[in-house]
Simulated assay, not measured.
Amino acid sequence: MASRSYGQYCGVVTALEQVGERWALLIVRDLLVGPRRYVDLKNGLPRIPTNILSKRLKELQDDGVVRRVPLAHRGLVYELTDRGRALEPLMLALGEWGFGAMGEPGPEDIVTLDSMTMAFRTSFRRDVAAELPATRYEVHVGPVALNLAVDGGELRVRPVEGGPLVRVADGELAEEADADLVIVCGPGIRELVAGTVTASEAIAAELVSVQAGDPALLDRFARTFHLDPGRTPSGA
């Protein structure tokens, strides 16, 4: 801990000493989606050096944020402790805050299952969804394909056709879901989520392609998953 000490007695300082090192919060982000083996974490963060990943995991374990446990059919995995999972509201607020400054992706920027899962959790408008009929979406963004099941103000996320485990809010694993609307999109989905284009404009501009289901449901999707780049994050 001494090497990470800021030398100040403050809750913010303690938080930074525990999760403020480079890559630490991205490890937390991925583990908020579900338990991961070491190789899963490495594949989800391809630029992290293996020695840094091992070091960060050891630090997070020492600080009581992460633990290593056996999981049926997957061997030993890393998962968040209760203290680690308590970071979720902070992570969602941080993602919402960063959304306004994202800009266009760089040529080497990638999306992963875990990053997109957290992106949809961040943009999910629970109050709006509670007033809308239950709807299941299948969303393809680059190599990532997710089922988003929205029902009564609750969101459940699962990879399409299996994949890494994804935990939902109650700690159980989401079940396979059929979809009312199947869409394929690229970085342009950001404009739909930001509200800078309407659903019909997104289709016309080929930012989003409807592969199955009623295209009119894309408007419901845009209302359910929305982030205003100029809005103060809800956690503030």
Rank of each mutant, 00 (worst) to 15 (best):
A2D: 14
Y6W: 11
G7R: 07
V13K: 12
V13M: 09
G20A: 02
W23S: 05
L41P: 00
L41N: 01
K42N: 06
G44Y: 02
N51Y: 11
N51Q: 15
L53A: 09
S54N: 11
K58A: 14
E59M: 15
E59R: 10
E59T: 11
Q61M: 14
D63G: 11
D63F: 12
D63E: 14
D63H: 15
V66F: 01
V69Y: 05
L71Q: 08
H73I: 09
L76N: 15
L76S: 14
R85K: 13
A86K: 09
E88A: 03
E88P: 00
G95K: 13
G98M: 09
F99L: 05
E108C: 09
I110Q: 07
I110Y: 15
D114F: 12
M116N: 10
M118N: 12
F120S: 02
R125P: 00
R126Q: 15
E131H: 14
V141R: 06
L148F: 04
D151P: 00
V157S: 07
P159L: 10
P159S: 10
P159W: 09
L165K: 06
R167G: 06
A174K: 00
A174C: 01
E176P: 10
D178V: 07
A179T: 05
V182Q: 08
I183Y: 01
V184F: 07
P187R: 10
G188H: 11
G188K: 07
T196G: 05
V197Y: 02
A202S: 04
E206W: 04
V210H: 05
A216D: 11
L218P: 02
R220I: 09
T224Q: 05
L227P: 04
L227S: 11
S234Q: 08
